[in-house]
Design a protein around this nucleic acid. Structure first.
Length: 487
RNA sequence: GGCCCUAUCGUCUAAUGGUUAGGACGCCGGCUUCUCAAGCCGUUAAUCCGGGUUCGACUCCCGGUAGGGUCACCA
């Protein structure tokens, strides 16, 4: 077989529209997407909306927005169509019905004659006797003809041990207890996930199913169905579970997992989330100790064989660090425009000019881990002094054990020094050189603190040299004079 | 409870059966320093337990233990 006529890799992400997406779901999508891209394959988005009860309006848009934000584009999907459209399961009912009828005709599926209450009673009995519930034990001898008004159940015909191979977990097996007559079509006419996903994956030519490990338990049932339908089955790629931060439980919405778009709102970069998620349950392995990767590098390095088997905890602190590293690697223009966007949210900065922005951006860069931190800085008034003159408090102008008279003297000298610096040399580095020796001679604290405080009016702020260069000669001198005047 | 999966520093993890068990985040400490950050350097810290196979086991096998999943007209 030549490379050209090898089967094209097709992966899919198949969420159900039951609300927002959290890290867990996105990670599954991410791995499937990376694998497709690495192999020049196709990535399909399919919406599994077969449960009308749990459906949350707006979910599909939310899912699309989330995937778009992360740059996980799809080649076929609900909004763009494709050769196997539609990509929303509720619009594919005829297809499922066709396959279901075929199974029923062959005697491989049968109408379920019991009411929900009756089945519930069976279940409770089993529970009371501490046995697993198995519908097979109650399989009717002569079920009625399936007319669509009752559920259609799959008939397990070979009750035996199931063995299969998983690209991550290796050889797996389960005893016959794992097999049961599960429902294919519900009484409302919709298929179950168990049935619909198998039909769709087959119809859409999916070659690799990436999914979380909660599906291992039902895989024997899936395999029985593949066999009954006489269709080839895709490769299974089982991802390790992601646990909550406490490591106790699988991450879930119920236990406070965050909407992925919250990370966007908090000012995380999509590339950082991408990087971080790729490393939950995967890493490039031997000899590569790097932690920060671009999308492109991850696609190049990705190998299914390096996917972990064990569960991982979500480490938000590391995510912060990863985000900071990605921010540091942003092209300067991108960084500045991101800063601009945040500044625009605050009236005080709405008119800040581009030059000021460019000057303060290095200071911002080293102080934030997310762009949300910038929002906090501004809210806390940590940048106000770049726009407005600070309100100075006399006592605070004076460094610890110094006094008003001496401080006045130092500030007057500082003004002279600043005036002597030529405009062409007016950057933080040079300003520091001019002032440094004087400050060292008199005592850095007694000189530098008053200067810095006069400029910022803050106990905590960037160094005085940076402030002077950003505020400019005229404004800096004016502020220092202001300080002198109240001493 | 049945079935299934998993197990290396606190966390994420590396290690053709042979390493002083490596890296990263965090923590702690130091350097730098007018403050706050940033940066740099360093310390601490792990193979779940018990058997076996082997000259040699984190690695292979068996048995425990622990955690997770599943046993829906949910996906």
């Amino acid at each position: 077989m030549t490379k050209e006529n090898q089967k094209q890799i097709v992966t899919r992400f198949a969420p159900s529209p039951t609300g927002f997406m959290h890290i867990g779901g996105v990670r599954t999508a991410l791995f499937a997407w990376i694998f497709a891209r690495k192999n020049n394959g196709k990535f399909i988005l399919r919406i599994e909306d077969t449960d009308k009860e749990r459906e949350v309006p707006g979910s599909i848009e939310h899912i699309i927005e989330s995937l778009n934000w992360l740059g996980l584009n799809w080649d076929e999907g609900p909004n763009i169509g494709g050769p196997k459209a539609p990509y929303i399961q509720s619009e594919r009912l005829e297809i499922y019905k066709k396959y279901a009828q075929t199974l029923a005709d062959k005697g491989l599926a049968y109408a379920d004659p019991y009411s929900k209450e009756e089945i519930q009673a069976f279940r409770e009995t089993a529970e009371k006797e501490k046995r697993p519930f198995s519908y097979r034990e109650h399989r009717p001898e002569n079920p009625p003809v399936w007319d669509g008004s009752t559920p259609l159940r799959f008939k397990i015909t070979n009750v035996e041990k199931t063995k299969w191979h998983d690209l991550v977990r290796g050889d797996l097996e389960a005893g016959p207890e794992a097999l049961d007559d599960f429902i294919l079509i519900k009484s409302d006419g919709y298929p179950t996930y168990n049935f619909a996903h198998i039909i769709d994956d087959f119809e859409m030519g999916v070659t690799h199913i990436f999914r979380a490990d909660e599906f291992i338990s039902s895989t024997p049932n899936f395999i029985a169905l593949y066999n009954a339908l006489e269709i080839t089955r895709p490769e299974f790629v089982t991802l390790p579970p992601i646990m909550g931060p406490d490591g106790k439980k699988k991450l879930s919405k119920r236990d406070g997992a965050k909407d992925i778009l919250e990370y966007r709102n908090e000012g995380y970069l999509p590339d950082a989330i991408f990087n971080f998620l790729a490393f939950i349950g995967w890493n490039p392995g031997a000899g590569d100790d790097r932690e920060i990767f671009s999308r492109k590098e991850i696609i190049e390095l990705f190998k299914i064989e390096k996917i972990q088997t064990g569960g991982a905890n979500l480490n938000e602190e590391k995510l912060l660090w990863v985000n900071k590293e990605h921010i540091k690697r942003m092209p300067q223009n991108d960084f500045i425009s991101s800063v601009r966007k945040i500044l625009n949210e605050f009236p005080i900065f709405a008119n800040a000019d581009e030059l000021l922005l460019k000057k303060i951006s290095p200071l911002i860069l080293e102080r934030i881990e997310t762009f949300g931190d910038l929002r906090k800085m501004i809210s806390n008034g940590e940048l106000d002094y770049f726009i407005n003159k600070p309100v100075l408090i006399k006592e605070k102008i004076i460094w610890k054990d110094s006094d008003a008279q001496k401080t006045k003297e130092y500030l007057e000298d500082a003004i002279k020094i600043i005036e002597s610096i030529s405009d062409s040399n007016f950057d933080a580095e040079n300003i520091k050189e001019y002032i440094w020796d004087y400050a060292t001679e008199k005592g850095r604290g007694v000189v530098l603190w008053p200067i810095r405080y006069s400029l910022s009016g803050k106990d905590k702020s960037p160094d005085p040299f940076s402030l002077i260069s950003i505020l400019g000669k005229k404004e800096s001198i004016a502020r220092i004079k202001e300080a002198i005047s109240i001493l």
